[in-house]
Amino acid sequence: MISKTSLGMIAAAMFGATLFAAPISCLAEEPAAATSHVAPIPPPQDWSFAGFFGKYDQAQLQRGFQVFREVCSNCHSADHLAFRNLAEPGGPEFSIEQVKALAAQYKIKDGPNDAGDMFERPGRPSDYWPSPFANANQARTANSGALPPDMSVLAKARGIKRGFPWFIFEALPGFAYQEQGADYIVALMNGYEDDAPKGVTLDAGQNFNHYFPGNKLMMPKPLSDGQVAYTDGAPQTLQQYAKDVSAFLMWTAEPKLDVRKKTGFRVLIVLAILAGLFYATKKRIWADVQH
């Protein structure tokens, strides 16, 4: 009887093994076809806001805002970014006076007034970041047909799949990683090539970038060394600009990150205490039951 059972078990186990050997060997044939146009994985950067205790670096966000304002915002909109956000806790934390002065430098379309006309007035902190173009069609026309994407949540909209088995680790405490979008933006800023490699032909207006999917990008190289004048002594290099602006874009995409992680830390501690108390109580209650 026992041998019959174990025979069954062995048969089942062998069956299972064969079953899974087949799909795995099928998968093994696959990669050759797929790899040719896949962009490389952007190298992970060292982010202050990564990890369990991560929080934004205020000075970095202020520098990043400067890069965004002087460079990116000439073509990109950021519709969900309000001036007042720049003074909120967990952000660049400019003073409310600085934000008022900043907003007043921009002309905001308002109206209609009593005469029925639209008019322009100086911005207020409650206003949203003005778009460089009136609408998407105008933006396309001004940019050789390519629409510069809105930057409000861009850093969360550019996820990089690192594939099996990394995707499992990226969820786990200690390995958790949610900064692929910021990594990608840094890599993209650094990934331009003046001349396309052999075998790649670019159409008019296209630029070659190692990290852009498909490698052909309409956006010309936006940042170079020395382009933005920092006032806080940070290095004025492409790499520094790229990191700062990526951090800033991560903040515009996830402005509540600081409070989120801080709250989460407390929540987990409370839950751990609760779980411990529940377990002790449960043990007490079950002490007299054989189970």
Binding site: F52, E170, P173, Q178, G181, K261, G264, L268
Partner: peptide, 21 residues
């Protein structure tokens, strides 16, 4: 605890980046 780990530390892990477009 598992749920809150995801909510507070890797809230976008299970989602798709394209849904932020």
């Amino acid at each position: 605890m598992l749920y809150c780990w995801f909510v507070f530390f890797v809230p976008n892990y299970l989602g798709d980046p394209d849904n932020y477009i």
